[in-house]
Design a binder for these strands. Structure first.
Lengths: 221, 221
DNA sequence: CAAATAACAGGCGATGCTGCCTGTTTTATG
DNA sequence: CATAAAACAGGCAGCATCGCCTGTTATTTG
């Protein structure tokens, strides 16, 4: 299984429906470009102001587009939010793969788990993950957001699981352990991120080390 | 070290300055009662509507007090928020101790770690922890809130650490390991809470089991 | 080249929140 | 009992945001 095949399959599975084939018309290209500019501005708003800071006026200002253009692409705020949700999950997959696949060349099987775990820890420190956390937390108390968020989150989880089974056929007989290790890493890393301001780097590193030991022990058993 | 002594010491360390000695005047008692009613209403708002849902109007309505009474006790919204922060940390300590100390009677030393870990997992499933998460996440993007939250969070962490050393003198020589286990449990549990809607109970239980093994292994080493 | 359509610009009223303000009632004090 | 002070009630202006609306420009198509 080549890295590029894996990358293509996962990205296809998570690609927002709005991003179909590459358009040829100038208008459509410009439109898609403006749309992307607004989505990136929305991520900026999420990171700097949280879900409450994701307002149509703020996004329009950051993206340097008029409120009219905003309304043309996203009729209501929740339409924008739904697009941002898809965009964030897509970017999370894309950025993780870019990072991880750049490290796996010429490595042995056992090293891959460590590399994947380390890549995951790096991935939670990105602005995209910060935006994801804002959405995930806000979705717990906002039914409209949750209606867009939870299905996307479930699909992301399914793609993640399926890919793990496909990409590591050598461990197919113990994929339950792989899934457990993945869930474990996800929980530890996001929890560490939440408590980072209080814990500080030193205690973070200690917990990361302990977690890695637990994951390695899981594969030996 | 008796449980009640430990309980008193920790609660004293985290008690909000507003809660001094028990007042005797009717007015002051009524005032403190109203104040508490507003703080509890604020927690309700946090849990059901997130930090953005913590508005002065909503809190006043839930607490069934006028906006004038609200303003009398908390001149500005941020004053209310700061009081809520202290209230939440105090309640977290109080509820955890109520739970944990109710389970430690007649138990051996090694069991205490398991019991404390289980009590901690229960504590993150309370409405008070849900409110804490809302505040912790919002504090990352709201400087005013962070100015009230981070000092309180650090103090909570210090009280927690100091108490661990005081309460388990038999393991004083390996308190670094204890601290690491505590940090680890905190990270795993809060991370699991965030991903609970996607993971589901079964995978949650698996990760909890794996985490407990890692903690036990930590104490054997 | 003309008609149609897509992309974009900006304004308006409604809504909800905040801070402040002026009264009213209840309790404490000399 | 009179006065002060605390606790509480409710209203009003300022501000930001949202959804919707009417124009304007640029591109496509017959």
């Amino acid at each position: 299984m080549s890295g590029s095949t894996m990358q293509k399959r996962m990205l296809d599975a998570m690609r927002p429906s709005a991003l179909g084939d590459e358009p040829v018309r100038w208008q459509q290209r410009k439109s898609a470009q403006t749309r992307l500019k607004m989505l990136e501005a929305a991520v900026d708003c999420l990171v700097s102001g949280g879900y409450a800071g994701l307002t149509t006026a703020q996004v329009a200002e950051r993206a340097a587009v008029s409120r009219g253009a905003m309304h043309h692409h996203f009729a209501t705020r929740i339409d924008l939010v739904a697009a941002v949700v898809d965009h964030i999950f897509y970017q999370r997959i894309r950025l993780f793969l870019d990072d991880y696949l750049g490290t796996v060349a010429q490595r042995s099987d056992v090293e891959l788990i460590d590399l994947a775990t380390e890549a995951h820890w790096r991935s939670v420190q990105t602005r995209e993950y910060a935006a994801y956390v804002e959405l995930a937390v806000a979705a717990r108390t906002d039914p409209e957001l949750n209606a867009a968020f939870e299905p996307a989150a479930r699909r992301y989880d399914e793609v993640w699981t399926a890919e793990m089974i496909e990409s590591f056929p050598q461990w197919r007989d113990q994929w339950h352990a792989m899934k457990l290790g993945s869930d474990f890493a996800i929980a530890v890393h996001s929890g560490l991120l939440l408590h980072r301001p209080v814990f500080g780097q030193e205690r973070i590193d200690m917990v990361l080390q302990l977690s890695m030991q637990a994951i390695r022990a899981l594969y030996k058993a």
